[in-house]
Design a protein around this nucleic acid. Sequence first.
DNA 1: CTTACTGTATATATCTATATAAACAGTATA
DNA 2: TATACTGTTTATATAGATATATACAGTAAG
Lengths: 135, 135
Amino acid sequence: MWIPIQIDEKSAEPLYHQIETQLRSLIISGNLAEGTLLPSIREFAGDLKCSVITVRRVYQDLEGEGLLRTRQGTGTFVSHVGDGAREEYRRETVRKALEAAVDAGLSVHFGREELEELFREIVKHKYGEEDKKEE
Amino acid sequence: MWIPIQIDEKSAEPLYHQIETQLRSLIISGNLAEGTLLPSIREFAGDLKCSVITVRRVYQDLEGEGLLRTRQGTGTFVSHVGDGAREEYRRETVRKALEAAVDAGLSVHFGREELEELFREIVKHKYGEEDKKEE
DNA sequence: CTTACTGTATATATCTATATAAACAGTATA
DNA sequence: TATACTGTTTATATAGATATATACAGTAAG
């Protein structure tokens, strides 16, 4: 089983975090179906050129989030993420980041209009210039 | 000179960071006027019950951001923050946080509408329920 | 020029995050 | 039940963040 993970050696972002973020995204997005048996920690560590402990940590963290299930001696599987749970997870991830951003705005006394305008500008830039009617 | 800084001993947020955030806010908001002589690092350390090194770090960081000026032997002053620079600073602070939030949205495949709706919800909650017409 | 205040530099202590190796324990199957 | 895979535990190493004391250096005023 091959999992497409890209490691940036030069990044300040910790190794385990790079792996975790990308693997989480693959699961959340449905690119890794429920029940998929992931590579063993040793095999994955070989692919990623890191220690088994680092892979283990990633599996453990994602298991803590309910995205993986692990059975000693058997392996680690993508667990069933119900639509409800998936939505909840996606929403909470984004909500936290948005709340931090709004708090940042409040902390430097950004007005509501000012904040909304900057938000629209960034969304336009990152989501593309297309008119929203396309959705 | 007395500077109103509240330290939360129990917080996981580092001491220097708590001080830095609050002092920065006082400067950006204009509560500390240009030219104001801040307490010496020893006096401030005494008030805050921390070491002079910690206060020194705060002064040094904020000097790096252009918010303070320091002269050895004399003291540390609130520097002139031109309206332009102040706006630039405020804007960049919030922009970074908003960009991180939008990136978080993209990473879990939030649609544009979905993201905007959640943003509006959070803004409404944090800025209050009042109709925007009040501004 | 001494004194009493400023900030500065150096050396160090402690804690946490990150990452590892090696020994241990469960599981499946030939 | 031997073996060849799984994950797990323990002990450790390293780097960076946080915080400190102490000695050093600049400034201003009596």
